[in-house]
Design a protein around this nucleic acid. Structure first.
Lengths: 257, 257
DNA sequence: ATCTGTCTTCCGTCACGTGGAAGGGGTGTA
DNA sequence: TACACCCCTTCCACGTGACGGAAGACAGAT
């Protein structure tokens, strides 16, 4: 109601609703295999209920039983996930460009999208000599400290930006920007220059540069290179390359959707 | 009850149960974007019901709305799918080996798992000069005619084999094996030799060779190379390579699980 | 033998999902 | 302007099917 009419309703219902979905939520990167009791505890329902819920998901293919009798996310979910335009579709469009970039730089190349006030890594090519990375494909992370996150946040709807700015960012290192005003200026600079540089904001020895992937004027993802270093100059040579690759991905997406 | 006691119950419930899952099932590779009315029609519920169901999934992240107002599979599903051991986990373990294989051969390299009486392609590296392939990552296909399918079927539980053999296989080309007896012999040969060769059984100009990926004695996936050709001899030089790569994947999986 | 942890099945109750009906927009045809 | 036909959205009384307590089976540990 605020301004645009493009966003239809159909988001209000914030109740979890189906407990089936809550069961799926019980599986996380840290706990990808659960027993029935663990699921029941995580979801907060009696065992008998969990038993039926898991039974349904099992029959559907959403969860599977491994050889130890524990439950894991099933192939059906992966298969459905492959239909997500921001998942596999994006990955397939981006991979060739990411490989080219890796070929030239032999550094970590990352692709991420925004989900709410967080980011999700969709693909990564990790150089063995490159700096160690914290997250994995499919993993989530905070927006502000990362290069990809700065790009995604800078081009996010204002309400999302305000929501992130309202909460004080976590300080991972002494270089992490935690002051809202400073972060606001950094975002403006990202919009102006078209790239974001994160200088040791996540780990003390890594710098990254990120560029937006645009489709018809909308930023749908961000591409970055992460290198070992202790100043923004470490990534400066890579700026044109990252920018060009991000543009290439955007063009590919625009032509295939 | 037939023989083993390892497989617990918890599969009987064959009713779809939650309609939420039916909504997700409405999305397919052919129709990855649907309007609310299309979903309602596909699921077989009135619009108002579909509206609520989609609303729940939307709030959860299972479906998203694209700029045209149509619904698509959401990032949350992709993210969950990344936890599926037979999805992304398998892919990550296999990709280096597949890349090596591609480096040497520059032919199509495919990785697939069995789901019931079908196979699902988990990853593919497609050579541009290579033969055109029908399916995509995340796609399903019948077991019998493909190389990967023969491997997966040959090592599947007997009941699955019988189920497949009971139905007459579709004849894609005049080389497709459709006689149950002949297929039975082919499967025995696959078990004996450790590889499967599919000679023009899917398309008239392609031959493939596949090898099983084993983890602790269980076949969890199959790896294959598809080349243009008109006889089994076209793939014979690749047999050792495919076999070695498949073994390597299995070893990697065994050490990381 | 007992206890503590798994998982499985059954069944009576009542919350909650269901879907009919009504309303609001947009676009195309007369 | 009026009508027709799509889309989508909201509301609410009804009755079905999900819920979870209780009881039992099984395995391993003390």
């Amino acid at each position: 109601m605020t301004s645009g009419l493009r966003a239809g309703p159909l988001q209000p219902r914030r109740t979890a609703g189906g407990k089936l979905l809550a069961v799926l939520d019980a599986f996380t990167r840290d706990r990808p295999a659960l027993t029935l009791s663990e699921i029941a505890r995580a979801v907060g329902v009696p065992l008998s209920t969990a038993h039926r819920l898991v039974g349904e998901l099992c029959a559907w293919g959403g969860v599977e039983r491994d050889e130890d009798g524990r439950y894991r996310v099933g192939l059906r979910v992966w298969e459905l996930g492959a239909l997500a335009p921001r998942g596999l579709g994006l990955r397939e469009a981006a991979l060739p460009f990411m490989e080219d970039l890796y070929e030239v730089t032999h550094e970590n190349v990352q692709l991420a999208v925004r989900d709410g006030t967080e980011l999700v890594f969709v693909e990564r090519i990790a150089g063995r000599s490159a700096v160690g990375v914290l997250t994995r494909v499919g993993g989530r992370f905070a927006l502000p400290p990362t290069g990809v996150g700065l790009v995604l946040l800078a081009h996010a709807p204002l309400e999302v930006q305000e929501e992130v700015l309202a909460r004080p960012p976590v300080g991972y290192t002494r270089h992490t920007i935690t002051d809202p005003g400073q972060l606001r200026r950094a975002l403006a600079e990202v919009r102006r220059s078209g790239v974001a540089i994160s200088d040791r904001q996540v780990t003390g020895d890594a710098v990254s540069v990120a560029a937006p992937v645009e489709v018809r004027g909308t930023v749908v993802a961000a591409l970055s290179i992460v290198v070992r270093g202790n100043s923004a100059s470490a990534v400066r040579p890579y700026i044109p390359g990252v920018r060009a690759a991000a543009r290439g991905i955007g063009r590919t997406l625009a032509s295939t959707s």
